[in-house]
């Protein structure tokens, strides 16, 4: 969040007055987690998009009555959740018996709580990825989110493998301490990779590294590395 956004009185005022920038800030802050909630509640991609955009339309119309960010978030979550429940029930009604339907629609609080935990955790982590420099972010997304190998990433992005590795190391540097910690363990291997043995195969490098390392550390790193490096 930018400092401006945290300035509660200033941005809330702009938000209520319908200033484009403030509204867009709120949108950026919340639309992904709402979309995520909607898909978790069983909606298809397009349905989720429709519901989330509806929620923001409603927020726009009611903007003058909000007093703080929590309040806005609460409104968005509730509106989205209710719309999802309505749509799910419409869809299911055709195929299910009354009992089955009411079971599904019970929408247990506990379940929803867990969905909220997920979407909120992601909402907090995702901006760290988004804030990476452009190339760095592209590499990071290829490797971490798409599960691409260094070579695949290089090919897809049209850059050298060396460049991929450098960008990755940079991403890790920038994400250090941003609570994507398990990821960092793997990253050290890659930095090692870049620095010491660029021409050695990944596999033998890992083996060499593991010999030097503590056992528990290695096991965690190994899992991550298989994913990040050899696929």
């Amino acid at each position: 969040m930018t400092p401006k956004f945290q300035d509660n009185t200033y941005w809330m005022l702009s938000f209520r007055e319908g200033k484009h920038d403030a509204f867009r800030k709120v949108f950026n802050e919340h639309h992904r987690s709402l979309y995520y909630l909607a898909t978790k509640m069983g909606l298809e991609r397009e349905e989720a998009e429709d519901i989330v955009s509806d929620s923001f339309t409603k927020l726009w119309h009611g903007r003058s009555s909000f007093s703080n960010e929590e309040h806005i978030k609460g409104f968005l979550v509730t509106t989205t959740r209710n719309a999802c429940l309505n749509l799910v029930s419409q869809k299911k009604r055709r195929h299910l018996s009354h009992n089955e339907l009411s079971y599904i629609l019970a929408d247990h609080e506990e379940d929803f709580f867990r969905k909220m935990v997920e979407s909120e955790l992601l909402r907090k982590l995702y901006p760290h990825i988004e804030q990476l420099p452009k190339k760095c972010k592209a590499v990071f997304k290829q490797i971490y989110l798409e599960g691409a190998s260094t070579e695949e990433a290089a090919e897809r992005l049209g850059i050298s493998t060396r460049n991929v590795l450098n960008q990755k190391a940079r991403a890790i540097q920038l994400l250090k301490g941003k609570l994507l910690l398990l990821l960092l363990i793997c990253s050290f291997l890659h930095i090692y990779n870049v620095v010491t043995a660029e021409n050695t195969s990944n596999k033998s490098l890992h083996q060499a590294f593991f010999k030097k390392s503590e056992k528990s550390f290695c096991q965690k790193a190994h899992t991550r590395c298989l994913y990040g490096c050899t696929r």
Partner: peptide, 12 residues
Amino acid sequence: LKIFDEVNSEAI
């Protein structure tokens, strides 16, 4: 995070 990343923000 991939689901998060694939959201079509501008369309919404």
